[in-house]
C-alpha cells in the first residue's frame, strides 16, 4: 500500500512526508476495506448501467457567439507570479 500511496501522490502532485505515507496508507486500507464490501457483498449485474450523472437528458448548447474576454490585468490579477501579460512558471525543460 505504501508504494501505491507514493505512486498516487506523485500522480496527484502532492509531496508527502514518510509519516504521511504511513498514516495515509493505514487510513486508506481502512477506507478501502470498507469500500470493498461493494465487491464482496453485492453482485452487480453487467446490464446495470453506470450512472455518471443524475440526469442523462438534454444538453444545453451555447450558440457560437463571441462574448467579451477579461482584460488581461484582471485575468492576471490573482497570479502568484507574472511577467508582463504572461503567467510565469519555473522553466520547463522539453528536451
Amino acid at each position: 500500500m505504501e508504494d501505491k500511496v507514493r505512486y498516487v501522490a506523485r500522480l496527484a502532485r502532492i509531496k508527502l512526508t514518510d509519516e504521511e505515507v504511513t498514516l495515509f496508507s493505514r487510513q486508506l486500507d481502512g477506507i478501502l476495506g470498507y469500500v470493498d464490501k461493494l465487491n464482496q457483498k453485492l453482485d452487480v449485474q453487467n446490464r446495470t448501467l453506470p450512472m455518471s450523472h443524475p440526469h442523462e437528458a438534454s444538453n444545453s448548447f451555447r450558440a457560437d457567439e463571441v462574448k467579451p474576454s477579461l482584460p488581461p490585468e484582471k485575468a492576471l490579477s490573482n497570479a502568484p507570479q507574472k511577467k508582463g501579460d504572461f503567467f510565469k512558471v519555473p522553466r520547463i525543460i522539453e528536451e
Partner: peptide, 13 residues
C-alpha cells in the same frame, strides 16, 4: 484534502 485527493486518484488510476 490530501487524503481525499489521494483516495480519488487511487480509484481512478
Amino acid at each position: 484534502a490530501k487524503r481525499r485527493i489521494i483516495l480519488g486518484t487511487y480509484v481512478l488510476s
